[in-house]
Amino acid sequence: MPSTATHTVDAPHAADAPLIVMEDVNKWYGAYHALRDVNLSVRRGEKIVLCGPSGSGKSTLIRCINHLETIKSGRITVDGVRLDDSTRSVDAVRSEVGMVFQNFNLFPHMTVLQNCTLAPMRVRGVTVAAAEATAKRFLERVRIAEHAHKYPAQLSGGQQQRVAIARALCMEPKVMLFDEPTSALDPEMVKEVLDTMVSLARDGMTMVCVTHEMGFARQVADRVIFMADGQILEQADPESFFRHPTHPRARSFLGEILAHH
């Protein structure tokens, strides 16, 4: 896993080159060491579930991938583009990386349709007609097309989160990041969002998900990564991770989380 050689990173469009590469990434919040020597490589089409106790750096890690957080040292490369704080690299990466947030973050003053067409029109320069066609296609896909002309406040949490997924998909990203997408939902709405994510996974989307939904991890993840104290402590396919977690922290974490299910 550690240190992918530089020349493979610089061959961006090779189909077998990893989509995301993080090398020796370190991040601090003041004196707090939030990410410690993180190395992670995500293949095209791979589905990764990140788990770990709160404050372990999972969210911070995925927020570094689209530069919502800056790093202190190390390198992050997305689809061959090295994130280097330049506007150009940040723009290039963000337009290829979709993100879904815990609190949906839909824009309250825009209809569902407008939420979905804003970025394609303003960032990609797509025409209104084309943007709306794309939006309708993805709204259909998350089964919420009939609410296209409603405002976010008129929808339930689960519906809002599905719109947020459609909004991100409208940019036709190469990878989707999910930051605890079901944590703010009422229990009866978790399933509709997870179902949407499962179907997205089935269609081959590359996904990095921070979630405590272990059922989801079992069902779709190619790899489960366990983090604590800003470090990746263990990674394995879901079967082995859930059956035989090796790191003691992973074992106690699983014990706690599975006790609730």
Partner: peptide, 27 residues
């Protein structure tokens, strides 16, 4: 304005100025 609104705009690839005009200003 919730910081998440700004982050959602940035994550979609909008620039800071666009985020201010299109997302922050009206609410």
């Amino acid at each position: 304005i919730d910081k998440g609104q700004i982050e959602a705009g940035l994550a979609l690839g909008l620039h800071k100025g666009q985020v201010f005009r299109m997302i922050v200003l009206k609410p």
